[in-house]
Design a protein around this nucleic acid. Sequence first.
DNA 1: CTGATCATGTAATTCGTTACATGATTCC
DNA 2: GGAATCATGTAACGAATTACATGATCAG
Lengths: 185, 185
Amino acid sequence: MELSRTAYVILGMLKLGRRTGYEIKSLVDVSTRFFWAASYGQIYPELERLEQSGLVTGEREADHPRRRKAYELTPAGERALHHWLTSDAPLHLELRHEGLLKFFFADGLSPEEEVEQLRRMRAEHERMAAQMRAVEPAARLAGEERGEHHPLMTLEFGLAYNDFIVDWCRRLERRLAKGAPAEAA
Amino acid sequence: MELSRTAYVILGMLKLGRRTGYEIKSLVDVSTRFFWAASYGQIYPELERLEQSGLVTGEREADHPRRRKAYELTPAGERALHHWLTSDAPLHLELRHEGLLKFFFADGLSPEEEVEQLRRMRAEHERMAAQMRAVEPAARLAGEERGEHHPLMTLEFGLAYNDFIVDWCRRLERRLAKGAPAEAA
DNA sequence: CTGATCATGTAATTCGTTACATGATTCC
DNA sequence: GGAATCATGTAACGAATTACATGATCAG
């Protein structure tokens, strides 16, 4: 029974608690999104499939003021999640970075044009870092309350990661500003 | 005239010299692949489209021992490339990292299981770094000869980037080995 | 009462990979 | 002579985004 990565995102989120598709999507958008995104177009059909295969159970909540269907993990779902978490299958690793792609081809640009591009790339990573810092307090609180430290640690990684790229951009910008030679580090 | 990112990869590679589709693919596989991949299924049809729109010209090489079609940039192709390189359109930035995804959900794992996963993630990044180091001398030489420093600088970034992640994994592995508390950095 | 948010879903489209098919040439 | 590499292409499939449709409820 091969599951998609998105399926595991869902199983993982349900391990953290009973949730609707909408809630899963909202959570993803402030947490895993930075290294694994998911859209409604994936989540709802995948929930359907997971229920069909008995890895999750959905329940219409009659008490809730809104019409909604909340899901939780079945024992089989827990097992599937744990199996994936400990499996030695090759990891899907993928980076698509248009800023780096442009930089690769930047030999024809003037120093001014190049600095401008580096600034734009840096701005994007600063924006991401800011978004992460915005959710950090909530993540810290939730983590402490529930004894779950990994979501916060992943967030810290994301911050360090973005800072790393921001620093790299900044160094190059400075060097180019000083009538710089384009020599490597 | 909106072009795909893959189209720009091709234009960029042709800016560096006259090339066949096969050669472009080979080059991509040892250079941009780490932050922007491309397959034959994209390259050949895209070359066709680019020729149709007059951004590249292809020529059957009669002198060459093999039957092949080499392409080069037209002035319009050069302009399109330069326009993209200096444009302020939002950058496509995407990271998909199954290792981080697992780490995010790792609160249920035993320290041993977690260390094992971190090791696997580290191994993948070490492998990538090794691949980059393998092509580094050639990239350095080619860059010096032709005065094109950015491909090499991008490679150096890739190395630093992978080392950054490798270090992060290593730190956590050590902490976990010491009967570690899972506290954040 | 009105806009924001909660909530569920689907259809169309785009993007990209994988696998296959084919054949020539070069290296050992 | 046979394996590796050069070389071009396509078809099928899968993964994911975007946009759309729909409607209820909540906050001001």
